[in-house]
């Protein structure tokens, strides 16, 4: 555990909590892509199956359980409790265009051709692109609530910090996982445009809106 890994995990946790609180406090999930949230729930479910097969640490177990529970709670709020506020008309990203290539890639390029390993690889690949329906929704409506941009910022920051974590682990532990690193790079790159808008607009007190 190094500082990048820890702050990365906390950033991830912050993102998840910010989104849950936003929906809960405003009693609305307007502007949130339910499709992205379903994909994230799928990511956690397929990655954390090892909760049943191996114990790493109390920290590891607790964080995994929190992530999974929050992911399903978010999906429930969007498609259940606050369904009336869900903006399905703008959440039109074709998820099969992500899922099919990701399944194929996970079957073809993995560390070992075993069910658990393929599911883990699938979750890594899927996570790297799971935010696309959300970004697509924002580009379609041309704007995002400020609290939604904070969510996206912490979610993007998390994988960026993991990149530094992997550099650290490469030098000090000889650890290197090509699949995680490449997927993490892709994931981070997808946020670059958003990071730019966040820094130049939101942090200066302006609402994030895109030119028509």
């Amino acid at each position: 555990m190094n500082i990048f890994r820890l702050t990365g995990d906390l950033s991830h946790l912050a993102a998840i909590i910010i989104l849950l609180l936003k929906i809960w406090k405003t009693r609305s999930c307007a502007g949130i892509s339910g499709k992205s949230q379903i994909l994230f729930a799928l990511v956690f479910t397929t990655r954390y199956l090892d909760l049943f097969s191996s114990f790493i640490s109390l920290y590891n177990t607790v964080m995994k359980v929190i992530y999974i529970m929050c992911a399903y709670a978010t999906v429930y709020l969007i498609y259940g409790k606050f369904k009336a506020t869900y903006d399905g008309n703008h959440d039109t990203f074709r998820v099969e265009f992500l899922l099919i290539p990701v399944v194929l890639l996970a079957v073809l390029i993995n560390h070992a051709f075993a069910p658990m390993e393929i599911l883990w690889t699938f979750s890594i690949y899927l996570e790297s692109v799971a935010i696309l329906p959300q970004l697509f929704m924002i580009s379609k409506t041309g704007e995002a609530e400020t609290i939604t941009t904070h969510y996206l910022f912490f979610l993007g920051l998390y994988r960026t910090l993991y990149l530094f974590n992997w550099i650290w682990r490469f030098y000090f532990e000889g650890f290197f996982d090509l699949i995680a690193v490449v997927a993490g790079l892709v994931q981070t790159i997808l946020y670059c445009d958003f990071f730019y808008l966040y820094i130049t607009k939101v942090l200066k007190g302006k609402k994030l809106s895109l030119p028509a």
Binding site: R5, D9, H12, D50, S54, I56, S57, N60, M63, K64, Y67, N110, H111, A112, E117, W120, Y162, N165, F175, D177, I179, A180
Partner: peptide
């Protein structure tokens, strides 16, 4: 086992 070492991450 290849690829098993990273499973301590989240």
């Amino acid at each position: 086992r290849p690829g098993s070492c990273q499973k301590d991450e989240l």
